[in-house]
């Protein structure tokens, strides 16, 4: 029937989409720069409340968080996933 895509590729695209949304959010908030915004990356690195700073904040937080999930997926899928394609 329809074409088949590699699952990984689909997931990379979803991952990229979500991280871009985080980046966009950071960019918009950084541009607006509301009062009291004080991004601190992973509770240690102080970032400036600028578009660049906020984009870094959004991309690193969400990117690494979801990235860790994907690494775990890759690890588990290679080792324990025996439901092979027929």
């Amino acid at each position: 029937m329809s074409r088949r895509l590699s699952g990984r590729r689909v997931i990379y695209i979803v991952y990229a989409a979500i991280v871009s949304i985080a980046a966009l959010m950071g960019f918009i908030l950084g541009t607006i720069n509301p009062e009291g915004m004080d991004p601190t990356l992973f509770f240690v690195v102080d970032l400036p409340a600028t578009p660049v700073g906020m984009v870094i904040f959004g991309v690193s937080t969400i990117g690494l968080g979801l990235g860790a999930l994907l690494l775990l997926v890759a690890y588990v899928a290679d080792r324990y996933d025996d439901a092979e394609l027929s």
Binding site: R3, L5, G7, V14, L69, V73, D81, L85
Partner: peptide, 29 residues
Amino acid sequence: FNWITTMWNGKIRLTTPMLFSIGFVANFI
């Protein structure tokens, strides 16, 4: 995690129900 792992080694067919399912996962995250 389980949804993503299911897809990881899979061969995906992007039918309409599957598109909505992938959209579910993205929005749910």
